[in-house]
Design a protein around this nucleic acid. Structure first.
Lengths: 258, 258
DNA sequence: AACGCTGTTCAGTCATCCTGAACAATATGA
DNA sequence: TCATATTGTTCAGGATGACTGAACAGCGTT
């Protein structure tokens, strides 16, 4: 367990709790329900161990059993996650402005923070007339192809960006930018313009615009985006939309002390 | 630990995992950050034990340290909670209809399920023109004073309702119904009308209408509500609003197989 | 009916998690 | 400024309890 240093090192970590969390992560990333045996193979521990963990998590509704008898994430996590999101001052302060943005742009609005090199959506507001339904997507590994992701790439410190870009970049559509030079050029453009565009790069037919939110220290704190049908927003109309978006992003930055 | 039966009983539960979950619940219900010592007192375990748990949870971002050095819920729970909500078929099926409802009523829409005798919001949609900002509220112990809560009271099996009503009912405003006869009369009215009203009963100035969603077995599955300013929706206008609400609730019921 | 799968049960034992006390690092107060 | 209190952290030691591994039961399929 300990490294080759031989020096005795104290680890203030409770192994079974860690394993339980890992189990939840497995259930999270697998978008389907799973069995005890399957979990035990993935986690590399005995079936009975997984059984005990699952029983414990089920008693607290962190895990639930589906009709098929297999297991998925439980609903108690929904409330807990909502409570965790409420702990974020940004969200409380940004929410009214996001609603304004949804109303004025008439588009779907997302607010995201970067958390452990993952884009995490912390608030979303739908417009009145949803002429267009934005598909829910998984934001893992989409830094190069979503407006939110690009904002983080463009405004994060260099070290952080390089860390992120080390991961392989996936092709989502024919329009997805993969080559490093193209991405660096894109970052450059985003910094000059103050907003990011993703047009058909993640899902064909969907265009998003993104803008940065800065905190009291002048550091990137979050990103806000609007999503719409590509057919509805042509390139020559980016500017007016981007102006509204940037105005609201600036308003949020001001709210949190920038 | 074991009861007085003396019979040896197997408990398939991992104590440390259970303790960790309890710690998260304490952080959830306390709407502020807490210290190690404070947590150890509440949980009734040694400080160093809490320290180990917190370190483990922090490493996974289930807990984070605030600027003050104390601890709250971590942001990894946000994503996990969202993933858990996505596991709910109801939500996927209801979401488009909720958007229609927000558009047609021009009000703020909530979708909730009952989970372990707690109202759990699983989806929300904001209208375009938010002439009015709905305050976020904590839905614990609000069965008697919110439209969503009342729907659950009215359409749940008797045993379940009695279980819920055993808890003491809190006064939120002068309009909050507390007396059992008044509540039973209200339940009766809701069943006749097919929708619930909460006018200034939780927060003065806020009115909500709620309607039930039934599943394939004809049982109450969820509730949907719209929220608005009381000044904006007088009692004589409940009916047309309620008609739209009931229509959409019925559409969702149909979607899930009723 | 035999087989392959599932999840469950349970005794044993070894690792590990908790206790409890001492320590350091900050607040608080005299 | 120096005590005092209270914080979070460190760590040795030992009882506890969590994991192993094998056997069992309950399915559906072949």
């Amino acid at each position: 367990m300990d490294s080759e240093t031989g020096k005795k090192q104290f680890l203030y970590t409770v192994a079974s709790v860690d394993r339980a969390i890992e189990l939840l992560f497995v259930l999270e990333s697998a978008a389907r329900d799973m069995g005890i045996t399957e979990l035990s193979k993935i986690l590399g521990v005995q079936k009975s161990t997984v059984h005990n963990l699952v029983q414990t998590l089920m008693a607290r509704d962190f895990v639930r059993q589906t009709d098929s008898g297999r297991f998925t994430l439980g609903f108690r996590l929904v409330r807990l996650g909502a409570a965790a999101a409420d702990r974020l001052d940004l969200r409380r302060l940004a929410d009214p402005i996001l609603r304004e943005l949804a109303a004025e742009s008439n588009e779907y609005v997302l607010l995201a923070v970067l958390h452990r090199n993952e884009v995490t959506i912390v608030d979303s507001v739908a417009p009145q007339r949803s002429t267009f339904l934005v598909p829910r997507i998984d934001f893992s590994h989409t830094f190069h192809c979503t407006a939110l992701g690009k904002i983080f790439l463009a405004y994060l410190p260099d070290a952080r960006r390089q860390e992120i870009l080390q991961n392989p970049l996936a092709h989502f559509t024919p329009y997805t930018l993969i080559e490093e030079p193209a991405i660096l050029a894109e970052i450059d453009k985003i910094r000059r313009q103050g907003y990011a565009v993703s047009c058909n790069e993640t899902i064909e037919g969907v265009t998003c615009l993104g803008a940065p939110i800065f905190n009291a220290h002048g550091k990137l704190e979050a990103a806000v985006s609007i999503s719409t049908a590509s057919a509805q927003l042509s390139a020559e109309n980016y500017q007016p939309m981007a102006d509204i978006l940037k105005e609201k992003a600036a308003a949020i930055s001001k709210q949190i002390g920038f």
